[in-house]
Design a protein around this nucleic acid. Sequence first.
DNA 1: GTAATAGTGTCTTTCAGACAGTATGAC
DNA 2: GTCATACTGTCTGAAAGACACTATTAC
Lengths: 325, 325
Amino acid sequence: MASLLPIEINLTAVIMAVQADEPLVYASSAGDGLPQGLPSGPFDPLNHRTLELGLRGFAQDQAGLELGYVEQLYTFGDRGRTVADGQQADALPSPHVVSIGYLALTRIFPGATDPSNFLPLYAFFPWEDWRGGKPGALERDILPALARWAEGNGPDHGSADRRALSRKERIALHFGSEGPSFDEEKVLERYELLYDAGLVEEALRDRRLPPASLPVKLGQAMAFDHRRILATALGRIRGKLKYRPVIFEMMPETFTLTDLQRKVEAISGHHLHKQNFRRLVETGGLVEPTGGQTTTGGRPAALFRFRRDVLTERPAPGLRLGRSG
Amino acid sequence: MASLLPIEINLTAVIMAVQADEPLVYASSAGDGLPQGLPSGPFDPLNHRTLELGLRGFAQDQAGLELGYVEQLYTFGDRGRTVADGQQADALPSPHVVSIGYLALTRIFPGATDPSNFLPLYAFFPWEDWRGGKPGALERDILPALARWAEGNGPDHGSADRRALSRKERIALHFGSEGPSFDEEKVLERYELLYDAGLVEEALRDRRLPPASLPVKLGQAMAFDHRRILATALGRIRGKLKYRPVIFEMMPETFTLTDLQRKVEAISGHHLHKQNFRRLVETGGLVEPTGGQTTTGGRPAALFRFRRDVLTERPAPGLRLGRSG
DNA sequence: GTAATAGTGTCTTTCAGACAGTATGAC
DNA sequence: GTCATACTGTCTGAAAGACACTATTAC
């Protein structure tokens, strides 16, 4: 009944925070020139009462952080993943490692939190930040390279979910600026598309090709499948913002509405309409004024705090964000 | 680096279908009087190229079904779970078994599919079916028993997400007919609440108490943590119906709109407003008429098929269901 | 005709999205 | 006063939710 080949379970943490209007993720490198990696380690049932407690232990040991909000993301069966076009995958760790990815949200406390290992999230996904308009890398690098890849339209592998989609359709669906437009939650789908197209460093590494054959450098690479887990995390939190007040896990005790909006925009990757955002957040009962004010160079802003009661009042209190503004 | 205690990964499949207006799940019993269990088995990296392929193998071997749509649900770290009030958990399987739950959707083909092991889903969760109005078990059995449990308001254990909630608050939030009302997606939360309150058979079994101490019988019990996985699956598909056209994975090639609505209601557990449903589905471009008709005892109904193009046209084509009607 | 089921036309209320404005500080 | 940032009042159009109605079969 027990399997012959021993299995190791790896727990990997995506620890997110937002500083001013910059989304951050905890990552560290094992040495010069080595890719950044997320806090992770093997699940040991002798030491860890539950999976989540094991993960919290690694975050404590490796990042020195006591995690608050934690949620499970996904379980990946192969760290060096299956590879397109019939090539055999045999990346660094043996294939019997199963990774369970987790998302954790935390606050940055100036002074108390060491910010040096919190890196800008969009360094890993430059094409996901639309706050300054359409990212330049899209038109310049990504779409032409994807178009070239779509020309050689081989049979696509992959899960049953995308079974009927051709390369061109996948590109139009996930990167298309016309038609279905850019769905900000499809972060993983976009990353996997770039991976399948051989446009991210990890794809070449897993196929044992030299990185020199990369046509363009699309974001910073990570160790193992950590960038895939990070993509899963970004997609998940972008979706979750809309129906859960998770943003407050990353806010200080009191904050201004402008600051709140900046941080939401930082995560979701696009600008929001100011008046609508305020209406949503205030009439939705998500926040309440503290009475205090801050001075910020113009008219002083009122301070707010999270209204915790909303959790017991409404089933899905979120920010139902529409775009633009 | 390798953990000392060997770990076994168990893959468990929730295979759902809908017959007429009855939601079904594949489950079988190992023998007389033994609880029903879902198709499952150990992941063996030597035989299974990926987790999902392993799962498909078990479904084929144990249920004789070739699965189409499959999605991962959640990974549970302990099959005999941690127990309330400081008692030690030591249920049947050793604690180093990790279960990965999957949701699969399938069609029932009269003749080709053996229906004998497809059991009515709501036999396991009678309180989740509101199509006939508020379930009788709620007022009669569940709420009084929960109220009694809330009286002895001990310190609640559990995940950080519900850290601040008292027993009374959890009851009001997930079962409350006033205030936040009954959120049909919170199937797991309700099951876990009943588990924590000792109102489902599995809770007593895991605490090694005799089943005789159950005040009422709330649905049929299942082996291991299979009912928890099933609850996760029901909650997931209820949510997913709203933004993905997954219902068509359980529909035949052609169908009437009334039949489609019946099956959606079967899954989501409440009635829908007929006109709004039709408008949604037609103007949303989810279906197209085939031109054919059926005769059903009244006016003949037009036949429709799923409009597959919608997948490439809109980012989140679902049924955005509101209630009632 | 009745019973049964299928299908439509249109009203009302809510709310997302956007317009353009006013308020209060520093200098 | 200007500049900068904070904040608000109100219009519009799209949908969600619900009303009552008509259509086509079997008997």
